[in-house]
Amino acid sequence: MSLSKQHELHKRRQGRNTGVGLVLAAFVVIILGLTYVKITQGGLQMQPERGVSDGG
């Protein structure tokens, strides 16, 4: 038995909520994919570590 009673509103808005959930999941996948591609393709330029000769 569930702890809280399912409200009628939840049932009515299930389709809408599922849609929003899928869009958000797709957004996460896209950010993850873009980050991976940018890093592996060398698209992101990291600051070079400052060496001893730089006085750092």
Partner: peptide, 13 residues
């Protein structure tokens, strides 16, 4: 009112 409530497809439209 419920029958006219927007579904995901309405926002997509």
């Amino acid at each position: 009112a419920y029958e006219n409530e927007a579904q995901f497809g309405d926002y997509f439209a």
